[in-house]
Structures are given as C-alpha cells and as structure tokens.
Design a binder for these strands. Structure first.
Lengths: 207, 207
DNA sequence: TGTACATCAGTGAACGCGCGTTCACTGATGTAC
DNA sequence: TGTACATCAGTGAACGCGCGTTCACTGATGTAC
C-alpha cells in the first residue's frame, strides 16, 4: 500500500522517531509540489513518506498537528536562510541588502512555504513562530539603525522604518507571483528601488 | 434538502439567471465566514443559496468556474471600493491618502476576499482581473505623479514609486492579520509613516 | 374561455472517490534468564 | 549458548463523511389553438 517507488525500509529498533522527520519532509515536498496547503493530506503525506496512513499517528495526534510541525520547521529554516548570507559581512548597508535579497530569494524558491508562513488564514500559535518573527525583525531594526538613515525632513525612527521595509519586502515576495500578468520590473531593480527609498541605500550590484 | 432557514422561492419563468448572482453571493458569504477558499464547496454554496447542488450546473460548468466568478465579482467590487472615496477630492495628496485608506480598509473588512484576490496560488486568468489591476495601478501612478514627489537625491520616477507603494500597501493589508502576535503599531500610524516615506506626504489626520 | 403542450427552474437519488481516524494485528529484534 | 518474552515500528482492513458530478424526473407556468 505504500508508494511503489519508495520501497522504504522499516526503521531499526531505537530509531522509530526518525520517521517523524521523514513525515515532515514528505509533507513539505507535497506542499511545494502542489502549492496549496490542503493538498497536504495525512494520506498523501503517508504515501509520500512510503508508509501507511496510521503510522503517522505514532508521531502526531492528527493532521492539524502534523501541519503545525511543518510550519515550525519551515519557519526555522526561513530564518536561517535569511541569516546565513550575513556571515562575515560587516558593512551595514551590505548586510541589509544581503538579508533582503535572501528574504526575497527564499520566498521565490519556496513560494508555497512562504505563503503558509506569512499569509495563512489561521495564524500559527506556535511559540517558535512568534519567536522567529521577533528575532528576524530585531535583526532588521538593528541593521537599519546601523545604516543610520538620514533624511532631512525626517526624525530617524528605525523601528517604524524597519516595519515599513518589512511590509514592502513582503509585497515584493508575495505580489508578483500572485499577479504574473502585471508588467513587473525586474526583481533586482525593484529591490534596489525599495532599499533606496526606504533605507537610503544606493544601488550596488556588486554583491 | 436545501437549507432549513432559507425557504427559498423558486424563480419565476424568465428569471432563472437570477440564481447565478445568488450563487456567487452565497459563495462569497461562505468564503468570508470560513476564511478559506476550500470551504467554498459546490454543495456548501448550494446549501447557502437554498438550492440543491445540481442546480448550480445550470449556471456554471463546475466548481472551478463558480470560484472564478467569485473572484471576478470580488475584484470589480474591490476596485470600486478603492475608487469610491476619491469622488470629489481634488487635492492630490488627499486623493492618494484616501485611496490608500480605502485599500487597507477593504482588505481588513474582507480578509478572505482580499487573500483570494492577491495571494492565491493559482492566479486567476480572468481578463477582468488583469484589467482591474492595471486600472487600479494606473490611478496610483497618476495620483502619485500629481503629488510631485520631490526628493533631493532622487530622480522622480512615479512608475517605480507607485510599485513600491503598492508593495508596501499589500504588506500592510496582509501581514498584520497573518501575524497577530507581532506588536504592530496602529494601522493608521503605519499608513501615515508609509506615505511619508514613500510619497513625501505629511501626516494629516483631518480626513 | 378552455385545454393541450412545450419550456423552464429546478429536485432527488445515486455514483465513485479520497479523506481522517480507529482498531486489531504482525513480524522483526533486543533482553532476561 | 539457547530460548521465552516483551517491545517496537509499523500494517491492513474498515468506518462514516462530504465531496463533485450525472441522470432521470417533476411540477408550475406561459403560449398556441
């Protein structure tokens, strides 16, 4: 009854819990392949993992909790992906640009995952999610503050500026894929323009 | 078999097509009530409309087309809602502010509808949608151009500025509802800040 | 004015399907004696 | 070293449900004669 292709070998004695990770990974593959959360059924996930449906109940109380686990894992991965390219970059403007690029890049590489993280009807109550969002945002505020945005007619306010920047980033991540017939400019150009307007950072395509 | 509450009376002879509108209206109620598109099943919509499921096939080839009709109707309503408050307002900055407020207002009053219009996996191929989006955006460009954004270190570029403004508006419309645990500032303040940064418009709470 | 008839706006029963979940079970494997 | 036994990692069959869609039908109503 499991997937014909998989030919999964049963986990050895102590290693049962390993299936949990395989289930989450399978669910994430289905999510990205189909693009929609409701394709991630318990049965489809079991098939993808090469296991029968009831086997999932050894690791999750039900489908709801399985999907919550997917969200938690994905959010952690997202935050890591946005942070990773900052390693070793010192100059604030370059840090900001690198982080924003990574944000957009992740969203376009994993559109369905991004959507489940940031556009869901039922927001996840997972502490992981709230924590990760706060962490990500604090990074943004700090970097922006280091950039020392100077606007003549404007009192510096990194907190509010960071929020507006995040809002625009989300727009850039989410809107073009949802309205592909609209004549969007190049993503890179849009990001440059956005950073210029919102963080006073000159375009720099060197990175 | 129809909904107990409805007690619908059958349409008179020539007025069969009226049911089409009732079906779309019923589907939109279910969409907003549930928050998710996949709750808008053919059977649930029929129940809500006070009709049996097969009756829908007289007006739509299937569920897919029924949902497309919902999207088309909703998009037209959205564009009208954003335009309506501009009537009679002449001053460009006030026009821009009024339009943006209406945008955000619509999104928060009809979150599920906004989501289906702007965050769908499968973008609608309806010409209505592409047309309405283009129309809405052209308004934004024109108004922004009339505002005559002046930035010292910046060549005016209403087209790009309008896009960035739209991206941020979308963020403001979509992100706070999806992450309610994040400590967002007041919507109005955020919108003010956003317009100040992206359109050089001073906060004016008079309107 | 009366009646046969066509049409219109639906109904009611049925189909096959995939779903989430429950339950009793199985067979390999480590452990105790 | 051999064997009984407990445990672990699952399987297989079954349930009731709501779904999209098809099909034959019905009953009210306007129209032709």
């Amino acid at each position: 009854m499991p997937g014909k292709s998989a030919q999964r070998v049963r986990n050895p004695r102590g290693r049962g819990p390993r299936l949990r990770e395989e289930i989450v990974a399978a669910a994430r593959r289905i999510l990205e392949r189909s693009g929609v959360e409701d394709a991630v059924t318990l049965r489809a996930t079991a098939r993808e993992a090469g296991v029968t449906a009831p086997a999932i109940y050894a690791h999750f109380p039900g489908r709801t909790e399985m999907i919550e686990a997917v969200i938690g894992t994905a959010f952690a991965e997202f935050v890591a992906a946005v942070r990773e390219p900052l390693q070793g970059v010192e100059e604030p403007a370059q840090r900001l640009r690198a982080g924003c690029r990574a944000y957009i890049h992740y969203a376009h590489e994993h559109p369905a995952t991004y959507r489940i993280l940031f556009t869901r009807h039922q927001p996840s109550a997972l502490p992981v999610v709230a924590g990760a969002a706060a962490e990500f945002f604090q990074d943004l505020v700090d970097t922006l503050a280091q950039c020392g945005v100077q606007d003549d007619a404007h009192v510096p306010d990194p907190q509010s500026d960071a929020i507006v920047l995040w809002l625009a980033l989300h727009g850039l991540a989410a809107l073009p894929p949802a309205h592909p017939r609209f004549p969007w400019p190049e993503q890179e150009d849009l990001l440059d323009h956005l950073l210029e307007r919102l963080a006073d950072i000159d375009p720099d395509r060197s990175l």
